[in-house]
Amino acid sequence: MSPWAIEFDHISKSYTPEEVVLTDINLSIKAGELVVLLGHSGCGKTTLLKLVNKLLDFDSGYLRIHGKKISDWDIEQLRRSIGWAIQHGALFPHMRIWENISYVLRLQGVEKNRRRERAAELLQVVGLPAEYLDRYPRSLSGGQRQRVGVARALAANPSIILMDEPFGAVDEQTRLQLQQELLQIHARFGQTILFVTHDIHEAFRLGDRIVLIDEGKILQAGSKEELVFEPASERVSSFLGTKGFSALLDDELLCDLHAQVQSGSFDPDLCLQRLAAIKGPALKAGPSASDRSP
């Protein structure tokens, strides 16, 4: 069995000859890895994600899921075996919460009682009370709907989960909570997760590995430390707001920064502020992370 859950091999895609979305993407994702695709809106990260469950087709290259070419998969079976969570949850408004969560199981022909049981288990996993099972999505808050969306992605016990800005539409506090819960779920079940976001902080909190994408190309794919301390190009460091970091940092600060990056609490803006306080005019602060995030 291939150690790679997903392999993009020289993948390119364009909508029209003038509108090239992805150029020569090479990326291999290990089974059990949580990889974050980070980039501005329109950089191609969602397109890349949608190639995996074949919601979109690519023009050239190879895409393998668990070592098997995507063209060799039965498309409906493949989709049913991949969890899919998107922004706003995209819950079915006419179905109760348990029906929403167990939708894929219904597609797989699982009988009703078993589906309801599974939905109850998952509701617990995402921290919602069991009495929500028979409610409709409209009676839930944005954060609760996102949780149900995550539960739905987990329903069929998929080995791969695709998440397209699933926490994009909730307030910061709820988002932090959802991110923590996702990390706990990932630690517990160990699925391969491909997570799309434009938020640098979210990427640093979640990713085992971060793939920075710009204009349809991968600028750098690496660990958080690699991105911050060994940027592949100036574009990487200017995207992250870490341009010139290493040269300015003294040993103590560098150590502190390493710890922050490792724990996922790295915040380029805070670092810049701290550096500016020490170095004063020597540091020319780039745009803040919030400015860079669309």
Partner: peptide, 27 residues
Amino acid sequence: VDDEIIEAAVGMGSGQRHLLFWVRLPL
């Protein structure tokens, strides 16, 4: 019917029949 809902249903593996009878027609 909201495109996002349709995409969610397709992305989870709905066939044409499921999509029509379970999602589109009810909505």
